[in-house]
Amino acid sequence: MSWNLANRPADERQAQEDEKSRLFEFWQQNLERAKVEAGKLFGERSKRKGRWGDWVKDEIDALSPPEYQALVQREVNRLVAADK
């Protein structure tokens, strides 16, 4: 099985392109909000100490839609990596 889009039927290629466009638009519209949310969550790190990891996971899991959860998770990960 090939993953090359050129080998896929036109309707399947179009559906994948439409999904990529939708996700890109979602990313553009929500990135700043996700950065603010991640900053708030990261700000709790020093207060919650060892319990922060579980707490932040629960907070992110409560967000919706899943695409927004992923944006916030990536931003939290970026902040944690920059803090090391």
Rank of each mutant, 00 (worst) to 15 (best):
E32P: 05
P9H: 00
N77F: 03
G50Q: 15
E19A: 01
K40D: 14
K20R: 14
E32K: 01
E19F: 03
A15G: 06
D54F: 07
R48Y: 07
R13I: 00
D83K: 10
N4G: 05
M1P: 03
E67H: 10
P65T: 06
L71P: 11
A81M: 14
W27L: 11
R8G: 00
K35I: 14
E19S: 00
R45V: 03
E25W: 01
N30D: 01
V56E: 08
N30E: 01
S64V: 12
D11Q: 00
D54T: 13
L79H: 10
V56P: 08
N4K: 06
E59A: 08
K57V: 08
E67K: 08
R8Q: 03
P9G: 03
V80N: 06
E17H: 06
E67D: 11
F42P: 10
R48V: 11
R13K: 00
W27K: 04
A82I: 14
L41R: 04
Q73K: 08
W52T: 04
F26C: 07
L31M: 07
W3G: 04
S21T: 09
V76I: 07
K20S: 08
K40P: 08
L41H: 04
L71M: 02
W55I: 10
D83I: 12
P9I: 03
V76T: 02
W27S: 13
R33G: 13
V72I: 07
A34F: 00
D54E: 14
A70P: 12
S21E: 10
M1W: 09
E19V: 02
L41E: 07
Q69K: 08
W27M: 13
K35H: 01
K49F: 14
E32R: 05
Q14T: 03
K35M: 14
E44L: 09
